[in-house]
Design a protein around this nucleic acid. Sequence first.
DNA 1: CATGAATGAGGGTTCATTCAT
DNA 2: GATGAATGAACCCTCATTCAT
Lengths: 210, 210, 210, 210
Amino acid sequence: MQLGQIHRAAVSCFARKGFAATGIRELGAAVGLNSATLYHYVGGKQELLLGVIRNCLDAMIDGAQDAIEDADPAQRLASLVAFHVGFTATNPQTARVAEYEMRSLSGEHRAAMQSLRDEYEQLFTDALADGERAGLFHAPDAGMARLAIMEMGTGVAHWYRPGGRLALAQVQLNFIQMALRILAAEPAVPEELPVPARLDSEPNDPEGAR
Amino acid sequence: MQLGQIHRAAVSCFARKGFAATGIRELGAAVGLNSATLYHYVGGKQELLLGVIRNCLDAMIDGAQDAIEDADPAQRLASLVAFHVGFTATNPQTARVAEYEMRSLSGEHRAAMQSLRDEYEQLFTDALADGERAGLFHAPDAGMARLAIMEMGTGVAHWYRPGGRLALAQVQLNFIQMALRILAAEPAVPEELPVPARLDSEPNDPEGAR
Amino acid sequence: MQLGQIHRAAVSCFARKGFAATGIRELGAAVGLNSATLYHYVGGKQELLLGVIRNCLDAMIDGAQDAIEDADPAQRLASLVAFHVGFTATNPQTARVAEYEMRSLSGEHRAAMQSLRDEYEQLFTDALADGERAGLFHAPDAGMARLAIMEMGTGVAHWYRPGGRLALAQVQLNFIQMALRILAAEPAVPEELPVPARLDSEPNDPEGAR
Amino acid sequence: MQLGQIHRAAVSCFARKGFAATGIRELGAAVGLNSATLYHYVGGKQELLLGVIRNCLDAMIDGAQDAIEDADPAQRLASLVAFHVGFTATNPQTARVAEYEMRSLSGEHRAAMQSLRDEYEQLFTDALADGERAGLFHAPDAGMARLAIMEMGTGVAHWYRPGGRLALAQVQLNFIQMALRILAAEPAVPEELPVPARLDSEPNDPEGAR
DNA sequence: CATGAATGAGGGTTCATTCAT
DNA sequence: GATGAATGAACCCTCATTCAT
């Protein structure tokens, strides 16, 4: 309960200044806690980061799996793109921390998280392969296409702000269209657009960065 | 003279562990210099980072401007994409540091570098606007398309390794095709593919991260 | 609580070797504290010095003001001289640090402390002017006389040691006599000699210097 | 020759910020020399300070000895006071460095310089003893009187500036008068007022301190 | 004469973490 | 739960000094 606040403060700082540049006293102050008290809630700086990243990746995997119940490969990919973009737009700071600060995890923690991310990315790889096999997608290079599509979705964290010019659904639809165009596929739309949940760790305050 | 070595070591460390997590003694050791001697060459940690980023952004602006002498808007955009991808693939670590660690610059340094990056991005914005005006591009949203195209090019730093599976020119051509597809434009290819120079700051050793 | 100890150690070192030549680890060791723990009590080296000097000057101003309730100008001056000499003899090291190391304060801190010292010196200037006006003092140059009188009192810090050859009261009386002689005034003695308090910052150990 | 410039710069810095707080590069910059070049002229930081102090104390002893050819003990003391005040007023910064920074000398250097200062002070002690013996002086305490007289003369360095309100000779005469008053001696004036030379080490620029 | 390069030691300060209270 | 006190390690940086050129 209180832990949500802590995660929010952590993500806000980590996203803005980076994990290494964020002090534990600073985090404590942000939630009105003595730095020593933080150690009752989270086990330490590393564990805090690990918790944030794990929650994020878990949510990404769960959300993505929920989104791909469609039968049609094109719709499956469209759902994945919509989820990826939607999740990133809904949790821009958490998503960025989960990406950038993987390197700040040490040893086995990083390996564990990396395998979660691999699992997530595999969903995209599979969908793309299915589409290729079904003759629906015609990318010059399937691997590069997947990377490009995911990367451009991830980039949404850099500029999308809830309540901005574009509604989330519109952004999702646009990215679906761009992704399918990259694959030279027929336009498609998932039966229903996935609406990713806002994580506990996502700060309420808009960030100033970029 | 050995400033190139220093920049290389710095970029290697900054890309792998981040600016804040990199110690100045560590950098010195990486080039066989006492930490105090580093201060003889670079003025300090901030100045070192600033130098790296400035050199990188300068090269990006110069290279991109050289690349857009084509008359045709589609070719101009193709050239820009090819340069962007080529530069990122040739200098993946430097490019990533220049992007990620902007936040580690303080105050006016960051503002100055941000304005350089804005200048670079403006080239893409202009090319896209020209193509739209000429009726060549049909993106659902011009702004989002530009961000998506740039972002997917930037993402190349995450996976491309010189000497890997794909030749640089092939990657450039693929990205040109993907970008034009996003814009629903006719296929186009620049008169000659830009061949971005390798920066002094780009380490020779492949990175371990990601 | 043990802040007194810290101040004492600081004054002892500052008086012996000077502020700039004193290391913070050295100070910590002198009170059996890790250098980092010092920062828990005092905010830093500057703040430590500032605290010492401010306490000293506050005590000087308070003590001097308490000492000048006499009506007669000559007695007033005698009281001031007695206090000045007494304070300096009782807190020789603290007094010297407060004088010598003013220059080690930076910017506004120095200005603030200088104005406290001005306030203190003004008490002497006023007493002298009153005596002159009343025709009791006949110095060749009032300004020079004030400086001479104060300076010779300050000099007590260089040689007086509690428990030495002379009792404090005897020293005070001698200085009163010398001061009044400088002013060609009739001998006078305050109703009661001020007995300045020993500051928390005054070390117990006799100093080795000079 | 060049050495005079160096000493001047050194004294200027040492008087303003103290020996420990003055960097050797700083001194080099002040005379337009590389820090390494300083080592050709002066052997090191310690040696530089030693040279300054020794020159100063030598000049003080020589000057004082020259000044006491008078037969009459009162005139002898008057000459000494006049010299002391005159020297201090003429070389305020050098004199202060020679006094304050004795502590920055290490080991035998300090002992040697201290014995020079003792030799200088002995001249005053002797003159005072002669006067006492001759029944000319009647101080409550001869030792204290000597300290007071010397200290008030030394204090001149804190406020006297060449070209200020008072001519040097006037200051000297005033101090003679004050000193003799302290001793309850008849007014006396030396046959001729000693005119102390300006040392090579005395900076031309007026100091800002105090 | 003069200097740039180089270094080991140390400067003040902040760090994540622990623990008795 | 919560905290102030405490610490060793590390932080970036500056120091006086040396030496080949």
